[in-house]
């Protein structure tokens, strides 16, 4: 029961765009098992790698940031990324809780 009306992350995205930054919006679109943030949780990333908001409890944020940077670099509109604990790179980006999440990243243009 999140209070979406009062969430400020999209307002912040608008502020970043106003300041001439490139902004990628990352949204949790699916979760399986126990995962720290619910579907609809968001974070934003700019071309410098600054970010705000969250899509997990700190487990996959760094990986999401680098995916967002590549999206800007390759000038692609969107991408779906899945994170599982069984990932080869689990040491870096696995979810400690054993859950799985799918994150959708998209450029705001």
């Amino acid at each position: 029961m999140k209070n979406s009306f009062d969430e400020k992350i999209l307002d912040e995205a608008k502020d970043w765009i106003k300041a001439n930054q490139k902004v990628v919006l990352a949204t949790v679109i699916q979760t399986w098992g126990s995962s720290p943030r619910q579907v609809g949780s968001r974070m934003i990333v700019n071309e410098k790698g600054d970010f705000s908001g969250s899509v997990s409890g700190g487990c996959v944020e760094s990986a999401v940031v680098s995916e967002c940077l590549s999206l800007i670099k390759d000038n692609k509109p969107c991408k779906k990324i899945e994170f599982k604990v069984s990932n080869e790179s689990a040491w870096e980006v696995g979810l400690a809780c054993g859950g799985e999440i799918a994150v959708y990243i998209e450029q705001i243009h």
Partner: peptide
């Protein structure tokens, strides 16, 4: 997402 959509949201 288009900026226009973001503004509408």
């Amino acid at each position: 997402m288009k900026i226009k959509t973001l503004e509408e949201i």
